[in-house]
Design a protein around this nucleic acid. Structure first.
Length: 825
RNA sequence: GCGAGAGUGGCGGAACUGGCAGACGCGCUGGACUUAGGAUCCAGUGGGGAAACCUGUGGGGGUUCAAAUCCCCCCUCUCGCACCA
């Protein structure tokens, strides 16, 4: 009799149907408002994990919802296909990175299709294909032209035993991942992108990222790390040289009792004669655990008070930030305080706290807050913030230094001494020097025929036909750059690549004649991905978008209008991971319960931005729910099919049973709630809960006449429509089962009637002195006076009030009445 | 250390601008149907109490007719940054 819900039958059929009909191909209707929905593309590691399922389920609901709301939706997917694991696989298992990557892509694409995700595969990008990475190279050339790419010396992780450079993730506990040798730092010439050029703009624009989580915006701001201060020259006593320091606390200048210089500072070699001693400090450079200093025997003159203070070389002073030298004010900086204690240096208080009682004669720690200046010459008595201004001006006026703004943001080093990445399009000519590869010679193809040994550096170094080339300028012998680009370059513009029509990424012509597609699709309206990309990927993408804007390709500055950072998938109290052994395999889940159930559970168990606690029992609950709907429809299939609601007006159903009318109202209420929950922060969990309530209501509903059956059909249809973005397969199936035409994905999102969402009768809460004392049913919209009368006449209320005096009565419309009573009369 | 966020039943989580705490789901208890049930359906389910009622949103104080929600203090956990001068 009844047909049972069999996801294995339903899901593949509909996936085939969607694919054959090309249902999710991006439309070209210019009249519709656009919506660009994007999930962070995956690295093709082999198989998708539950984090992917969650991420893509969220994105798919949004994309499907927006389509039903009448938007022209762009919902693409691709592969972040360059990267280290492919190379590691080559070293360990002898499989070529290309083969490994493309096989993984094929498998994972199959998995995504099995999830029923509504992607426009026509626009798929794969970053390891020459058609894609040629644009990395092209952008690089453009940035060279604009002086946004440059070369400088920098340090890399080096394994002396394998004689190769290691990525940070290949350094395990300061040791090489392959041979356990201690990793050392080695200096190499590398390519950098000048993201610092955009530091100020990237910071300012943070305030416009209103559709981003505040947390992420804050992380970006902190990463850029702007600070205002001054640079001041301290003359080295007995010489004409001076050391320039940077400080943000010029109000404490009179409290400086020594000066610290970075071991990497150009002057440090001059300041200290003993190279061995200097080497000791240099070896500890940047080590957070221990602060060590070395007295140089030299003194500097504080220009503000002409005081002689000792100069130290200190391992904690970073050469990369500020000027590589600092003044030390132990009384007002904890780190300087600790250093002074360690080396027996004087501590001089120059800032007095607002409440001086908090400051004892013998300082136990530095006072770092604001206060009033003391012992600071003509500036004594000023508040710190005022003094900062005054002293900065004094320094500038007297040629002692200048006001400066500093950023923590460093330029982006993109050189990687690896094979599986985009070749950097540069050649080195003995005669002409560094020569960019001419645009017409792009792409510089990554050679396939190379050997992977894991030792002796990048395989590209051994690829003779790749390395040996001719200089584009003098035609003489030249050597190719063998470094490849950081894979973050690939992902910094892929969202723009999707905007080109099918298979036609072409920035050259987009530069010649503005490509309307790009400008019409950008920015991404909704971006969804893990919070682990809160800084790097998102910042690089913001940077690239601006570079492309300035080159003249797009008119967008901010790539992502709204950002949703979904939480992790947790099981047994920890993030799912192979090493913890707590992973749930999506293949298994889809096989056992189907993709609808998998999607439904991951959307129901927690709001998207929170961590999701995995529960096998919870999955079964989701599965049960789908079965309940299925059974509800099939149990009543003939009557539902027979019910004709073409001309049925749910707002005015005519002569209908109370139960039928209530079901219609509940349906309207649910349409409203689900719509609002999706619109408001994508709270899918409560939206699904509302649908469960409606299904429970329908299950308990007993239709007794034609109108009731119409009401039930109306309710079922709306449930299916509302549920279709979450569980697209089962809703398609049931939609046609009750006599409709496919596809439900192409139907309009239902609307509600406000009057139908209002209750006829309300349950009024009676509080006495703020405590719940009873409830009364009364018609909605009843006047306050009448509410008071009914409440006061309520037998129970009267009993409680008794002979006590009524002090006050508060009525909250449609909700409650609070009667405040006092003592006996 | 700095910055951000969160503490609600046995569990995941609800509660829009202060207005019935615990929606929905899981689990649990009882029942029905069954040869059987780990299927399905029905009922119950914060704690205490036979009940009236009392009590309850990390702890303590406050504002208010009314507080999970607002204010102050404290505790715990999670996540980011971590020598940035």
């Amino acid at each position: 009799m009844e047909e049972r819900y069999d996801h294995k039958k339903v899901e593949p059929d509909w996936q085939k149907y969607w694919s054959e009909k090309n249902l999710y191909r991006t439309g070209s209707e210019k009249s519709l408002e656009k919506f660009y929905c994007l999930e962070m593309f995956p690295y093709p590691s082999g198989k998708i994990h539950m984090g992917h399922v969650r991420n893509y389920a969220i994105g798919d609901v949004i994309a499907r919802y927006k389509r039903m709301r009448g938007y022209n939706v762009l919902h693409p997917m691709g592969w972040d296909a360059f990267g280290l694991p492919a190379e590691n696989a080559a070293i360990k298992h002898g499989v070529h990175p290309s083969k490994w990557t493309y096989e993984n892509i094929a498998y994972m694409k199959g998995q995504l299709d099995k999830l029923g995700l509504s992607y426009d595969w026509d626009r798929e990008v794969t970053t390891c294909s020459p058609e894609y990475y040629r644009w990395n190279q092209w952008f690089f050339l453009k940035m060279l032209e604009k002086d946004l790419a440059y070369r400088k010396s920098s340090y890399v992780n080096w394994c002396p035993s394998c004689a190769t450079v290691l990525a940070n993730e290949q350094v395990i506990d300061t040791k090489c991942w392959r041979c356990d040798s201690i990793v050392v730092q080695k200096e190499l010439d590398q390519w950098f992108l000048r993201i610092s050029h955009y530091a100020e703009e990237l910071l300012q624009a943070c305030d416009e990222l209103t559709g981003w989580p505040e947390k992420v915006v804050l992380m970006q701001k902190n990463w850029i790390g702007k600070s205002y201060g001054v640079e001041v020259d301290f003359r080295i006593d007995g010489t004409h040289d001076s050391i320039r320091i940077f400080t943000t606390r010029q109000d404490t200048l009179f409290g400086a009792t020594f000066l610290c210089v970075s071991p990497n500072h150009p002057l440090s070699g001059k300041l200290i004669a003993d190279k061995n001693e200097l080497q000791k400090v240099t070896a500890q450079y940047g080590k957070a655990d221990e602060k060590i200093g070395l007295f140089t025997g030299r003194y500097c003159i504080n220009p503000l008070n002409n005081e002689k203070i000792p100069v130290y070389i200190a391992n904690f002073v970073l050469m990369e930030y500020g000027t590589g030298a600092i003044m030390s004010v132990p009384a007002h900086d904890q780190r300087d305080f600790d250093f002074a204690k360690k080396y027996g240096l004087p501590i001089r208080v120059v800032i007095s706290p607002p409440d001086p009682g908090t400051m004892s004669a013998e300082l136990s720690r530095a006072y770092e807050d604001e206060g009033t200046l003391v012992d600071s010459g003509q500036f004594s008595g000023l508040a710190s913030d005022v003094a900062r201004e005054e002293i900065a001006r004094f320094i500038e006026d007297n040629g002692m230094g200048k006001k400066v703004v500093n950023y923590k943001l460093r330029d982006w080093g993109i050189s990687r001494q690896r094979y599986w990445g985009t070749p950097i399009p540069v050649v080195y000519c003995d005669k002409c020097g560094i020569m960019p590869v001419p645009e017409k010679d792009l792409p510089v193809i990554l050679p396939e025929d190379v050997k992977f040994t894991g030792t002796g550096g990048s395989p590209l170094l051994e690829a003779a036909s790749f390395v040996h080339t001719v200089c584009p300028s003098c035609n003489g012998k030249a050597r190719r750059e063998t470094d490849t680009m950081d894979t973050f370059v690939d992902s910094s513009w892929y969202f723009i690549a999707y905007c080109f029509g099918k298979g036609k990424i072409d920035f050259v012509s987009a530069l010649k004649t503005r490509n309307a597609e790009l400008d019409s699709w950008m920015p991404v309206d909704q971006y969804i991905g893990g919070v682990e990309h809160a800084v790097l990927h998102l910042l690089y993408s913001r940077f690239f978008t601006r570079v492309l804007r300035d080159i003249g390709i797009i008119n967008t500055s901010e790539p992502f209008r709204n950002l949703l950072t979904q939480g992790m998938v947790i099981k047994d109290g920890a993030k799912m991971s192979k090493s913890k052994g707590n992973v749930v395999d999506p293949d298994y889940l889809i096989d056992k319960y189907g993709s609808d159930t998998s999607r439904l559970f991951s959307l129901f168990a927690a709001p998207p931005e929170k961590d999701l606690d995995w529960s096998d029992k919870g999955v079964e609950g989701a599965y049960r729910f789908l079965n309940r709907i299925w059974n509800l429809v099939y149990r009543n299939l003939d009557r539902l099919k027979a019910a004709d609601i073409k001309s049925f007006d749910s707002r005015n159903p005519g002569n209908i049973s109370d139960a039928g009318r209530n079901l219609l109202k509940k349906t309207h209420q649910t349409v409203k709630k689900v719509t609002n929950d999706i619109e408001r922060e994508y709270h899918f969990n409560t939206a699904i809960a509302a649908l469960m309530e409606l299904v429970n209501e329908m299950t308990g509903f007993e239709a007794s006449d034609v109108r009731d059956w119409q009401a039930l059909k109306f309710s079922v249809e709306n449930t299916l429509l509302l549920l279709s973005p979450f569980t697209p397969h089962i809703t398609e199936e049931l939609w046609i089962s009750i006599g409709n035409e496919s596809s439900i994905a192409e139907k309009a999102w239902p609307s509600w009637d406000e009057d139908m969402t209002k209750k006829d009768e309300i349950e009024l809460v009676i509080q006495i002195n703020g405590k719940l004392r009873g409830k009364l049913m009364m018609p909605a919209g009843i006047p306050d006076e009448k509410v008071k009368e009914l409440a006061l006449n309520d037998i129970k209320t009267r009993g409680i009030i008794g002979r006590k005096v009524i002090k006050k009565i508060i009525v909250v419309k449609g909700k409650l009445i609070n009667i405040v009573i006092g003592e006996h009369k």
